[in-house]
Simulated scan of single mutants.
Amino acid sequence: MSIWFTEKQTENFGITMKINKTYVSEQTEFQKLDMVETEEFGNMLILDGMVMTTQKDEFVYHEMVAHVPLFTHPNPKHVLVVGGGDGGVIREVLKHPSVEKAVLVEIDGKVIEYSKKYLPEIAVDLENPRVEVKVDDGFMHIATSENEYDVIMVDSTEPVGPAAKLFEKGFYEGISKALKEDGIFVAQTDNPWFTPELISQVFSDVSEIFPITRLYTANIPTYPSGLWTFTIGSKKHDPLEVPAERFHDIETKYWTPQLHTAAFALPKFVSDLLK
């Protein structure tokens, strides 16, 4: 008998995958955590019934969260990742030699523990000497930081449970305070097919705080609708005005210098959400 997992992405739509085995099914202090092996996408991390990452397509999300802001900033040295306990964003951050220190603040230590065990190629750099891992509340870490980071990346789940406050305007105001005078931040902001109101609200909130605010997209097949958005807020540096000589060679599977710019070219129904 085949076993299938279905993520109910809306009340009327879901995505289904065949499961070979279940490694972990646990209620942590913060959320329901499942780690499974799928037939199509390899090992997969699920939080509160939502797909977080898989071995097959993880590189898209992690590369686009990390490389767009890091290449936009002329000299990123001190980087913060809020969430991201699987370690994928950290792995990509460390491909930039200018980064002297990357701080990861993940609220759920179990995400880190099981990612190291079952997603080792994603969590590969969590013990790198340039990385500081804190099992703590990212919201509170931001609230107590000031003029500290060059780039902040918010690698959160969807806006439910412990991640809901990471989509509030007050959080973005805290991020602005935690950034240096030419700092940049990026956050995943869900998809335009099922959560258009969220994209509109976040873009409006970030635009009131950051003089340069832009939206870009990527194709991630295991995320709702497959079309995913990221909102970037910058104090000085425009991701659409990065000089060509700033792009240095790094090993990627999705991001390229050409895609860096192309990702900001939005379908009209998406750009309409930003008006």
Rank of each mutant, 00 (worst) to 15 (best):
234 S>G: 12
191 N>K: 06
67 H>Q: 13
253 K>R: 15
91 R>V: 07
186 V>E: 10
209 I>N: 06
120 P>T: 06
158 E>Y: 08
247 F>N: 11
94 L>S: 01
100 E>R: 11
31 Q>C: 02
266 L>M: 03
212 I>W: 04
44 M>Y: 03
83 G>L: 00
28 T>Y: 01
5 F>T: 03
86 D>R: 02
161 G>P: 00
230 F>D: 03
198 L>T: 14
78 H>I: 15
47 L>N: 05
197 E>C: 03
177 K>R: 15
73 H>A: 00
130 R>C: 09
101 K>T: 01
246 R>C: 13
175 I>K: 02
7 E>P: 08
273 L>Y: 08
205 D>V: 12
44 M>D: 13
99 V>D: 01
149 Y>L: 12
2 S>P: 15
122 I>H: 00
156 S>P: 05
81 V>I: 15
152 I>N: 09
157 T>G: 12
205 D>A: 13
25 S>V: 04
245 E>M: 06
103 V>E: 07
176 S>C: 08
39 E>T: 08
211 P>A: 05
30 F>Q: 05
149 Y>M: 01
273 L>V: 07
28 T>V: 09
7 E>H: 07
157 T>M: 14
68 V>D: 06
26 E>A: 06
230 F>I: 06
174 G>R: 12
19 I>H: 03
148 E>N: 11
20 N>G: 04
261 T>M: 14
99 V>L: 05
86 D>A: 02
235 K>I: 06
263 A>H: 02
130 R>T: 13
203 F>D: 07
216 Y>N: 03
199 I>T: 10
49 G>Q: 04
193 W>K: 07
27 Q>E: 14
139 F>G: 07
250 I>E: 08
42 G>W: 09
141 H>C: 11
129 P>A: 14
